Amino acid sequence: MKSGKIVKPRKLSDEKANARKLNRQQLERANDTAKKNQKSQLASPTIPFDPNDHILLVGEGDFSFAHSIVSEHGCADVLATCFDSEDQLLQKYPQAKIHIDYLTSLDQSVLYSVDATKLQQKVIRKGQQWDRIIFNFPHVGGKSTDVNRQVRYNQELLVSFFRAAYPQLSPGGTIIVTLFEGEPYTLWNIKDLARHVGLKVVTSFKFISKAYPEYEHARTLGNIEGGGGWKGEERDARTYIFQLNESEEKQNNAAKKRKADDSSSDDED
């Protein structure tokens, strides 16, 4: 019986061994950085407003977000609005009454039947300018099952909202929009839509729903028609901050001054 020949494993060259070691180290550093970033985001999520800001919320669902920014973040000047009438709202989201009662008990304002694309036609607060105008998860609802049409409808919604919102901003004010990540939302090209109407993207960041303890995502169609217990707050989402471009802001401020001058002249007459 022949004895088997023992084959010794080939040693890697020093160059290859060092390359593998370096790759492992780079991968470990990348993993550590990703973990640190994730912990940092969870520990200190970005809150894009201050307690003393004049805040206009449009497109509220059940008003749980409005409840949260008042109760958890100390916001003291909030006007929370929704598209539905009061009756429609309470039929779609019965839980809304709890949040509305809380807001009104602290002298925060709630307004129904406000179209986010026609803010200039709605007398919200005469002469009021807003530091932050916030539209969370804008969506037209189930207007079509065709993806391309849905994308177009939602793009039209955003463009109309931007055009209606920016004249209501105070100097240096921002428009804040949060969308889910991934398709079809990325197909909306929100940054390009904003630039088209004279807005610039200041920044964007991950939306951390846990930063708003009272908040629960409300479907556009409501609890029943929309499927009830769906938890939108568990999906990845991103918040975008927009401001007027300098040229647009100058034009906007000039228009506001002319309007104020005209109003003053009318009062004198």
Rank of each mutant, 00 (worst) to 15 (best):
E214T: 13
L22N: 00
F63D: 01
H99F: 12
Q243T: 09
L42E: 10
I134Y: 07
P94S: 07
N37V: 04
A76V: 14
A165N: 05
P138G: 13
Q38V: 09
N31H: 11
K191D: 12
H99G: 00
T174S: 13
L169Y: 10
G172W: 01
D87K: 13
A194G: 09
S144Y: 12
Q155M: 03
T178M: 09
T239C: 13
R235I: 08
A76D: 08
N31T: 11
K16G: 00
Y240F: 15
R195I: 04
P51H: 08
L90W: 02
S85N: 03
V159F: 15
K16M: 11
V114S: 05
Q26K: 14
S170W: 09
I241H: 02
D50Y: 15
D266N: 07
K250R: 14
V58Y: 04
N148Q: 12
Q129W: 11
R152H: 15
E28S: 02
K11Q: 09
L12A: 04
L158A: 03
K5M: 05
I47T: 06
D101V: 07
L187G: 07
L169G: 03
I133Y: 03
G141F: 15
K2Q: 06
N252A: 09
F65L: 11
D266M: 14
K11N: 01
N154A: 04
S40T: 00
A194F: 11
L193F: 08
I100D: 02
S263Y: 12
D77C: 03
F137Q: 08
R10M: 04
A211D: 02
I98D: 02
S209M: 02
A255R: 08
K35C: 09
A30R: 05
A211E: 02
E181R: 11
F242S: 00
E234C: 07
I190H: 01
A96D: 04
R132P: 06
N245V: 10
L193P: 00
G228Y: 09
A237F: 13
N253A: 15
A260E: 07
N253G: 07
V114D: 08
L42F: 15
Q91Y: 01
K5F: 03
A260M: 05
